[in-house]
Design a protein around this nucleic acid. Structure first.
Length: 152
DNA sequence: GCCAACGTTGGC
DNA sequence: GCCAACGTTGGC
């Protein structure tokens, strides 16, 4: 059975339009342990809301699907990368990434404000905690947000 | 640009 | 293992 997730990206770094253009991408640069642990629980075919953080407005912008399960994030070993981490040994990788593929860009952005003001979303990690860049979402929450995004 | 809420680091 | 100092995220 598929799991559901929410992935945050700053649209000025990588947006849903970029993913639509590329078709798929690797999700590198997660450097937070609980986000990493969530990523390692992902399986191929899981669905994820694509969230635009540091955006105006912050919002869910579309949907993507997990294409490849967690594997070592090579950017942690690249000294030139801003994601470089000298505490991630090659024989015992600390950081992981997944591959995701584009599924849809919403007709209508579902803003954080709208999510926060909807009663049935009050238990979402996005609402309760906020700062986590890879977080689990309930199927009911996922389905409801996708419905909102498709409504013109 | 500010700052609240978290996370991480490192001395002890 | 505690906790102060520091760093980051991300909404506003």
């Amino acid at each position: 059975m598929a799991n559901y997730w929410l992935l945050k990206s700053e649209p000025n770094v990588y947006s849903i339009a970029d993913l639509q253009r590329d078709g798929s991408t690797c999700w590198e640069g997660v450097r937070n342990y609980s986000a990493r642990n969530n990523m390692r629980r992902m399986t191929v075919g899981d669905l994820a809301l694509f969230y635009h953080s540091n955006a105006n407005p912050p919002c869910v912008a579309g949907v993507c699907r997990i294409k490849k399960e967690a594997y070592p994030d090579r950017y942690a070993w690249n000294e030139k990368s801003k994601y470089y981490d000298d505490k991630s040994p090659k024989d015992s990788p600390r950081w992981f990434m997944v591959d995701v593929e584009f599924l849809e860009a919403f007709d209508r952005l579902v803003s954080l404000e709208e999510i926060k003001s909807t009663r049935s979303f009050e238990d979402m990690v996005l609402v309760k905690q906020g700062r986590l860049s890879v977080q689990p979402v309930k199927k009911s929450e996922f389905d409801a947000i996708v419905r909102m995004g498709r409504r013109k």
